[in-house]
Design a protein around this nucleic acid. Structure first.
Ligand SMILES: [Mn+2]
Ligand SMILES: [Mn+2]
Ligand SMILES: [Zn+2]
Ligand SMILES: [Zn+2]
Lengths: 159, 159
DNA sequence: AGTTTTGATGCAACATTGTAGCATTTGAAA
DNA sequence: TTTCAAATGCTACAATGTTGCATCAAAACT
């Protein structure tokens, strides 16, 4: 089912939801890679690592290069379409930033390394900072053991 | 002023403060490297990267190997003498864990990469987690621009 | 003080994660 | 269709950690 071909300039401030609309709205070129990356992030139930996105692209039959993928993700973050999460593993994780949604905390299982979105735990503390400091955003990451891993049991299946 | 030489078994549960006492209290061997690392962390005004600790050791005239340093830091974290902070730079940072102190948040300047301890911003939220999850600790990192960098001005002197 | 034990170190090699430079391709505007 | 900057795909490279293993030395034991 081919969508109405071409035209229809996207209203730039309307919360676009399709990948191509999002890209175009930010003045970027709509490429297969970018579209696929966005769709991978949109379809994910939790923040994806660079590598996981890569797998998703492969699964979708989209050839891709490691570097291109890094650059695509970087661009998305830059445009605020996606955000990076440093959950204390070595690798960053990425998730789509749905318009209007407020920031939420994440849970990092120190056992299996999984990262979970805690949609209803806000991450927006705005404490008083030393003079001259300007706050951009706050990132709250909880650490512990996920249900699958259970607190008791072995130690350290992953950092 | 040489401390009373030798002897005096350290009361293992008293909050030891000297490096050697800390190490011994955790059943580790008191080595020059470990002592120097702890003292570097204790003397630091902010969390140090592996590399910064290395410089401190060099300054203190302590020869050291990259790997040994990593392992020393790992051991300290393992024993809960120090803690790791993932402030979203590539490299971890380490800080001493002073007994009884509650966890505090950190500020990461997205401009210059500096990390600052926000001693009076607690980082101890204990929100409700999905069933089966167990919380160990929570890490709160604020992002923005430090006073030196100022919000306005150039972009991206460091990630 | 000498011996022994085993934790800690040093070195080399490797792994992971991300960047930079540059020639080539391609999206999309003209 | 043509044009041309933006994206891509290499290839190198940088930064940060890790593994294996032979050697050293802290501290316990005699
Ligand atoms: Mn999330
Ligand atoms: Mn701190
Ligand atoms: Zn887990
Ligand atoms: Zn700064």
């Amino acid at each position: 089912m081919p969508a109405p071909a071409s035209s229809s300039p996207v209203p730039a401030d309307f919360p676009a939801t399709t990948a191509s609309a999002l890209i175009a709205a930010h003045g970027g070129r709509v490429t297969r890679t970018r579209v696929a990356v966005i769709e991978a992030l949109q379809g994910a139930a939790h923040p994806l690592s660079h590598d996981e996105v890569g797998v998703a692209l492969t699964d979708a039959g989209i050839a891709h290069d490691r570097v291109t993928l890094y650059r695509a993700l970087e661009w998305l973050v830059d445009k605020d379409i996606a955000q990076r999460i440093a959950a204390s593993e070595r690798a960053w994780r990425f998730e789509i930033r749905r318009g209007g949604e407020h920031r939420h905390a994440h849970f990092h299982c120190d056992r299996c390394g999984q990262v979970l979105c805690l949609e209803d735990v806000p991450s927006d503390s705005k404490p008083a900072l030393p003079a001259g400091f300007e706050l951009d955003r706050s990132e709250l990451v909880l650490h512990g053991a996920c249900a699958d891993c259970g607190r008791r049991g072995l130690k350290m299946e992953a950092r």
